[in-house]
């Protein structure tokens, strides 16, 4: 009884303050692929190939990359590439050939299930990896400047932004489309809070400072806001060309201050 009241108060307090970073799920919710958890203690582990050490602090939101059960015990892994620079830094070593963590025991002491953080609402995080015939969704949250991925993307670079699972907006002035793990961003700012007003398609991110190259709105001395507007527009890129299809990428368009940014949200391989 006591614990229930406690949870209610916390959620209520968060809502009252208008801060909705993440909310606790009821105890019986199941941890599944693409769901979100928060660490309840510091996790010291390695990448899946045991090449580099990874440390994930307490209170870090993570997305579950995969789940397995052995002898009744559940294990999960997470893709450390989706986390902020300080956490993923070890993956930049040439020794590291995988970006995912080892299997971590999914116990109540280690993780608590949470709802998807609102600052991730600008993309369909929970659809990542979903397959439909030849089409596989690639919802990684990376937004590129423009409205369509070029057919020769493998040799191209572009400006990129994204919000990491642990709540950092990262800006890359010049990023190749293909990368093993994101390097240090040009600029990184921590998300203080986020809202996603119903039916607006807007993900509104609040910060204490801004990123000079992006159209932040200054609301006060310590309050800057960036709005990512969802649209119903997208594009399809045929690679290498229309007369010889090897793969097809789809781009989903968002707008920031009326300028187009796109996410490469699926790949269909024909050869």
């Amino acid at each position: 009884m006591k614990s229930v009241t406690k949870i209610k108060l916390t959620t209520g307090a968060l809502l009252f303050l208008g801060v909705t970073l993440f909310q606790a799920q009821p105890a019986q919710a199941k941890i599944s692929k693409n769901s979100f958890v928060v660490t309840k203690q510091t996790i010291k582990t390695t990448n899946s190939k045991k090449q580099v050490k990874i440390t994930i602090p307490k209170n870090t939101p993570l997305q579950v990359g995969g789940v397995k059960t052995i002898a009744g015990k559940k294990y999960v892994y997470t893709d450390v590439e989706r986390l902020s620079y300080n956490l993923r830094k070890p993956l930049l070593s040439s020794k590291a050939t995988s970006t995912i963590s080892r299997w971590l025991p999914a116990t109540k002491a280690t993780f608590k299930q949470i709802e998807k953080p609102v600052y991730l609402d600008y993309y369909a995080a929970q659809s990542d990896g979903k397959r439909s015939l030849k089409k596989v969704k690639t919802e990684t949250g990376n937004l590129w400047k423009g409205y369509i991925v070029p057919a020769d993307y493998a040799s191209q670079t572009n400006t990129r932004i994204r919000v990491t699972t642990d709540g950092y907006l990262e800006y890359y002035e010049n990023s190749p489309y293909i990368f093993k793990v994101s390097p240090q961003p040009t600029t990184s700012v921590k998300v203080q809070s986020a809202t996603h007003p119903t039916s607006s398609g807007k993900t509104i991110l609040n910060f204490k400072t801004d990123v000079a190259q992006l159209p932040f709105v200054k609301l006060s001395q310590n309050h800057y806001q960036l709005t990512i507007q969802g649209t119903s527009y997208g594009n399809v890129t045929v690679i290498p060309n229309d007369e010889d299809v090897q793969k097809v990428l789809t781009s989903w368009v968002s707008r920031i201050n009326k300028e187009d940014w796109f996410e490469i949200n699926s790949v269909s391989n024909f050869k």
Binding site: I148, Y233, N235, D244, V245, F270, K271
Partner: peptide
């Protein structure tokens, strides 16, 4: 054959595509 071809159909706003028929 193993040869796939694409027909890209654009939406009303030319820079956006609506679908691609393989």
């Amino acid at each position: 054959t193993n040869h796939y071809l694409a027909t890209v159909n654009h939406s009303k706003v030319q820079k956006y595509g609506s679908n691609t028929v393989i």
